[in-house]
Design a protein around this nucleic acid. Sequence first.
DNA 1: CAATATGTATCTATGTTGAATACATTAAGT
DNA 2: ACTTAATGTATTCAACATAGATACATATTG
Lengths: 136, 136
Amino acid sequence: MVDTRFPVSVHIMTGLAYNRPNLVSSEQLAISIKTNPSFIRKLIVSLSAAGLVESVRGKSGGLRLAKNPKDITLDQIYKAVTESSLMAVPTKAPNKNCAISCGMGDILCKISDEIQENTLKQLAKRSLKDVLDQLK
Amino acid sequence: MVDTRFPVSVHIMTGLAYNRPNLVSSEQLAISIKTNPSFIRKLIVSLSAAGLVESVRGKSGGLRLAKNPKDITLDQIYKAVTESSLMAVPTKAPNKNCAISCGMGDILCKISDEIQENTLKQLAKRSLKDVLDQLK
DNA sequence: CAATATGTATCTATGTTGAATACATTAAGT
DNA sequence: ACTTAATGTATTCAACATAGATACATATTG
């Protein structure tokens, strides 16, 4: 199965940006994204912790952006909901009898880090406002 | 579980480059990488199809690079063994009653494509010879 | 013809993701 | 106060992808 947390989160954030400053419920978001409110709320926990979303509890509560869409970049969203790296890094201990095996770990980690950094830099160029403008 | 095909393939290719032009068996590679020959051979199928590896069957057979390490770049390896994109793209049909849902697909695909293209461009800068030099 | 390598197929164990469900907590509104 | 409706949190489940395991066909050397 593929990790959809980031794309789903972008969808969530776009929905909130679109309806700003009104509150939107996780139920409404779930319908728009065709997923379940449980998944939405799990993502909201991360997005709130990152200071991107505010929630209001109780009746007539809901969710809204914590910042202006132009001040939210996609790398912030990515970092909020994704902890693993795009490229897998070796987890197994190297084969100590093999020079190549011993050397590969560092090399692969360096490549992975480069990809990660580069991708985040690229996502940082795009704000939620850009996405919203593109939508219209 | 994480997709390790690319890092494992880089390891394979580095092993073959290191021992060039001698043949290396999938068994030896499996020991170096601490995995099983079956997985190695599955990857070899893809690497061979991409023209990166040659195999010799039968007794005293084995595997070797099909090209000079300086002419093999990491994006070639990546493309040979990985078909899915780094960032998940939406697979579900959009919610037709929702403008945002309908618009998100294209936007997310564009972002995914950008990341993919950018990452491959970055991997293209690095040749197998670079990896080998770095190892020594 | 025996030995040893790749090629190929199948099955299984494991881990991850997201769906489903339940329920506590909070706050509005009557 | 009480009902209603929202988030917060925990747990379980189903589906899926990955890689490990195994078996065996095929090819080639010696």
